[in-house]
Structures are given as structure tokens and as C-alpha cells.
Design a protein around this nucleic acid. Structure first.
Lengths: 270, 270
DNA sequence: AAATCAAGTTCCACATACCGGAACAAAGAA
DNA sequence: TTCTTTGTTCCGGTATGTGGAACTTGATTT
């Protein structure tokens, strides 16, 4: 029984309000690695037994969780369905898609579309070179902004105070030898990115994986996003990435403009 | 102002409890076709103004919804992230995947994996012949069980009383001229499916689209699922589907057995 | 300009429904 | 059997959500 107690609670305070608590519990189950027993969740969520039990019942009732015969809790199908609707109905993704395709045709490598959410990048679409292994995996995946091309590109669009607020809250985990380890080095690179209009991932998140990315600004909207072309280091040199950077910037700009028109035609004010 | 009032509320009673109400509102926004104004949601949800406003605030706070500058509400990214985790961590899908692949190699057509949820089939995985148009779309999509091959196959596994309860609650929408229009004809076909061990979709959901499907039963679990091979009518004859039916049944059986072993090794109750 | 209307937000007294400690079952382990 | 571990139920107290009504804000009309 020397297993680490997995500490208690997650970093942030358990959500406020009834809904917040329910979502915190849901997330605890969904983000866990496998089916979770009542006691596991109890330890991780920090909720009192009675409360937790009721929350779980409600989540099951709503189809957000499923309780198996052996009493373990698992994510329910309703999440998938909700996500399907919100993905397929996403106008921004729709606008961007043809541009992703043409970037893919130009480069032959994998192209990603990501949106910044706080301090993370959420991948929203992807055009793959040739179905490598996993199929559509990765859509919906959230990665830290500071070690991904799209992430750094998107950060570069933020006003300095906002950027600093976000950076202050980051925990710099060293995924590879090339990952940023401090706010200073990250901020320094972001200054360069602002100047150049594009960002690189030099094997910072995953070893042997590189990318070029450009930020997308949609005027009239406060969404911050980016696209990237990604490839394995053995096949894609830094020179190659630099050669592609212009096309990536152009595509990003085009997406931004088109989205501004088609997303909020009736609103443009600051 | 002769616009139809979009009636009020959805078919089912607004969810019970605070979480239920919140989810009903969330669903109202997600299932809608585009960004929703406050008043739209007000009409559809049937909640009082004050209550609805607070619910929406909480949903936004939780990242489940986003409020744009023009005050419209849209699905937030958190749904995608939650769904990504629950999809990629789904053991059943994982077990099934290699079997989907080999079925695809055998047939050259699109292969689906779906799980029955009440009266709908939710598509959980897919191996596509050759990236037709939409990429991974469709994962998470929910379709009526009575007009899809996997749906009818899955229904055939249910005990008769359960089946009849579900069928009683179905509204038979005629998607095509071949769609079942009554409980009787559906139940009759399900009897055949039980006998044969496989089901066909004879252009019942979408015109020009056919499939063969087989049900998956996982002993020790109460999940009911199925797989199918789908193709366009001009390329895939009924004779062809019949020829594939054996392989589909075999794959389904293999998935069911493997899943029973790998899903709940410590439980085998009645 | 003033008046009118519509859409969205805030307020607050009220009671619902959530809270959570503690008692209660159920199933293994000693 | 007795003890322990795990999951479920109960119930009084009150925090929390409820929802009608008043209040902004901005557009449209007179």
C-alpha cells in the first residue's frame, strides 16, 4: 500500500456552484486512465461521501457517466454526441478546412488547426498525410501552449498584459531537452514570433517532431487560433520548414479574413 | 412575425435537478444549428428568464459554452476535450479496432462500430475506404436504431420486453421509401435478424446506401453494440452483402469475446 | 429629439433541493 | 465469528438555486 495517494484534488479549486462540482467530478472520471471505483473518485475529488454519491447518480442519470456492473464509473456516450454536434457545427473549422487541405497538398505533411483556450491549445481539425496509425485521434486533444508551434503562435497575438498573466500561471514541464523551461525564454521567443509572423516547434513537445505554425486572428471575435504543418525530423528539415513558412502565414491570414466575414457579419465593433 | 414559435421545449421533460436543467440548456444550444441568442434559448428551453440567465452564466464559466461578442452562445471547447479523453480512453473501441481494420481490408468498404443507447445508435469508430470527403466526422453521431443496420442488429440482442418498451417509444420517420414505418414491420424484421445473426440496411436511412451488420454481445457487460460494412448501392449489391455477412458475424463475435475478457476480468456475474 | 419597443441583465425575498455527517447494508478478510 | 473495507441511504439544516419584476441598453419609430 505504498502507492502514492495521488495527492488530493486537482490544481484548481473545485468548481463553484452545483454545476461546477458536477463538472469537476465528471472531469475527474474522464481524465483518469481507466474505470474509476467510487473510492478512487472520493479521494481525488475531495467531496464528502454523501455528496459525491449524489453527484455521481445525477451524472449517470444524465448519461454523462455510466456505471458498470462492477460499480466502476466510465465516461458515457452523451459526451461523444454533444462533441460531435459542436464539432460538425463549428463554422470556424468549416471555414478553415479548405485551407488546411491546400496546405496539405502543398507540403504533403500533416496540417493542424488549433484554438487557444487559456494556457492550452485544443486541436480542432487535422488533415493527415496518410492515415498513419490512429485515425481522427487528437481532435479535441489539449496540449500546453508553451511547447507547441500553434500554441506559441497564438500566444504571440495576445496583448502583453494578458500574455504575462497566462505565462505566470504556466508550469514548465520539460517534455524534451528542447522544451522551454522558463517564462523568460518563452517570452523572448514570443517577441521573435511577433516580429516574424510565424513560430517553430523544434522538437519541444515530442522528440523527432517539428512544425511551423502561424497565428490566426479573427477581427471582431476574441478567438485566438493557429495552423501548423508538422512532420518527422528525419524527413522535414528546419530549412524546409522555413521554406513553407510563407505559405502557412498566407493560409492563416486567409482563414482569419474569411472567418471574420462569415462568422459575425453583423458585428465588428471593438 | 409569422415565424413559427418553434413550439416549446423538447420532447422530453426538462431534466430534473439543477444538473438536469443545465444539461437541457446546454443541449438546446449544442443541438441547434447555429449560434443562439438569449431569446432563442429562452423560447426553446422554457426556463424563466432569470433562471436561464444564471444557467447560461454557469455554463460559460465552466467552458461548456462560449458567449461571443454579439452575445450569441456557442458550444465551448471543453466538450471536445472531454470527448477526446473519453474516446481515446475507451477500451471497447480499442479492442474492436483491429477487427474493423481487417474487415475493411477484406471488403474495401467503410466499416463502422456503434453502441446502442436507448433508441439510438452512437457511432464510436470508423475505418473509411478512402477518405471520401468528411474525415472523422460521424464519430459521436447518433442515428435512430430502427433504420440502421447496426441499430437493428443491436436491438435484436435485447430481451423481448425491453425491445418492446423501446419500440413503443419510437417515432418512425420515413427517411427513404424503404424505411420501416411501423413497430410491426420492425419487430418482424428483428425476428429474422435473431434467426440469421445479421441485419441489412436496404437504403432505409439514406438512399443509395446499403450495409450488412452484426450484433455484438459482451458477456458480463450490459453494453449492446454492433459493426457494419457500408457501401454505395451502385457498387455493393445485396448479393455482395450476403457474401460478406459471414465475415461480419465472425468479427462481431470475436470482438464480443475479446471485450468480455479485457473489459471486466474480475467480474462475470449473471 | 422624444417616445417606443425589444433584448439582455440584475435584483431580492422565498423555498426548493442540495449538503454532508452519520447510520446502515453488503461483501470479503482475518 | 468478528473485523474491515466499500458502497448506499437517510435526514435535519441551510446554502443555493429560483423566478417574477424592475432596470438598463440600444435600436427603431414618430
Amino acid at each position: 500500500m505504498s502507492e502514492e495517494p495521488t495527492v488530493i484534488a486537482d490544481g484548481e479549486a473545485a468548481g463553484t456552484g452545483t454545476l461546477g462540482k458536477a463538472m469537476a467530478v465528471l472531469e475527474a472520471v474522464v481524465m483518469a486512465d481507466g474505470p474509476q471505483r467510487f473510492t478512487d473518485i472520493l479521494a481525488r475529488s475531495g467531496q464528502p461521501r454523501g455528496t459525491l454519491h449524489r453527484l455521481l447518480s445525477h451524472l449517470v442519470e444524465e448519461g454523462l457517466l455510466v456505471q458498470r456492473r462492477d460499480l466502476c464509473y466510465e465516461p458515457g456516450l452523451r459526451l461523444l454526441t454533444l462533441a460531435y454536434r459542436s464539432w460538425s457545427g463549428n463554422r470556424f473549422r468549416d471555414v478553415a478546412e479548405p485551407h488546411l487541405r491546400s496546405l496539405h497538398e502543398l507540403t504533403g505533411e500533416t496540417v493542424h488547426l488549433g484554438i487557444l483556450r487559456e494556457t492550452e491549445i485544443v486541436y480542432v481539425d487535422k488533415v493527415e498525410s496518410r492515415q498513419t496509425v490512429r485515425m481522427s485521434s487528437q481532435i479535441g486533444k489539449a496540449s500546453p501552449a508553451y511547447c507547441t508551434g500553434i500554441g506559441k503562435a497564438a500566444l504571440s497575438l495576445l496583448p502583453q498584459p494578458e500574455l504575462e498573466r497566462l505565462v505566470a500561471g504556466m508550469a514548465f514541464h520539460a517534455f524534451t531537452p528542447h522544451t522551454h523551461r522558463s517564462a523568460e525564454s518563452l517570452l523572448a521567443e514570443i517577441a521573435e514570433i511577433r516580429r516574424d509572423g510565424h513560430a517553430f516547434d523544434r522538437e519541444e513537445h515530442e522528440i523527432e517532431i517539428r512544425c511551423v505554425a502561424a497565428p490566426i486572428r479573427v477581427s471582431g471575435s476574441d478567438l485566438t487560433a493557429g495552423i501548423s504543418v508538422t512532420g518527422p525530423a528525419y524527413r522535414v528539415s528546419m530549412e524546409q520548414l522555413i521554406a513553407w513558412s510563407g505559405a502557412v502565414r498566407t493560409a492563416a491570414a486567409a482563414i482569419g479574413e474569411e472567418a471574420a466575414i462569415r462568422l459575425g457579419p453583423g458585428r465588428g465593433g471593438p
